[in-house]
């Protein structure tokens, strides 16, 4: 290779390596801020700030959804299989919100440990299958495998 071209190649490689290095450093500096939401285990550990708008996400615990019969008030428990957070919400839940499915909530964590949500989003998992297949495998697997699939 011609020396001039070799030099230009080195410059190109250095640009890419330098940019990657910068990205890694920025990523390390921001680390937690790049997460969309706090997991219940981090809320339980006291890492989530109180009285400030944050997001908490996890799996909706089975049989934990309690709806008020008179109002739109609803409460449910989010889990990451190590800790739980009780969430209260007033409003209409998204269609795909379900027990044993993922949800991401935006709101304020109270000093009583209850998360008062202003917005509830359903988090879809990566499983795609026809209804018949879902019916056929139902009960043969533990609900959605291991922790972390929310």
């Amino acid at each position: 290779m011609h020396p001039v071209r070799r030099q230009r190649l080195m410059i190109v490689v250095m640009i890419v390596v330098g940019a990657s290095l910068a990205a890694v450093l920025i990523g390390m500096a921001l680390k937690e801020n790049l997460n969309l939401f706090y997991e219940p285990v981090r809320v339980a550990a006291g890492e989530a700030p109180l009285g400030r708008k944050i997001r908490v996400g996890g799996m909706v615990v089975k049989d934990s959804v309690v709806r008020d019969t008179e109002t739109l008030q609803v409460s449910f428990v989010l889990t990451d299989y190590s800790a739980n957070v009780l969430v209260t919400y007033q409003g209409i839940l998204p269609d795909l919100f379900a027990e044993e499915a993922g949800a991401v909530t935006t709101g304020v964590l109270g000093e009583d440990g209850v998360f008062r949500a202003e917005q509830v989003l359903a988090k879809h998992d990566e499983k795609y299958m026809p209804p018949e297949v879902a019916k056929a495998i139902e009960g043969k697997h533990p609900p959605d495998g291991a922790a972390g699939s929310y």
Binding site: L34, L36, F37, E39, K123, E126, K127, Y128, V133
Partner: peptide, 20 residues
């Protein structure tokens, strides 16, 4: 790498894909 609303990939190269 981070918690996200977007689901992980369904087409997997090293294990069975989670799409029928």
């Amino acid at each position: 790498w981070w918690s996200s609303l977007h689901q992980p990939a369904s087409i997997k190269f090293t294990e069975a894909s989670t799409i029928d």
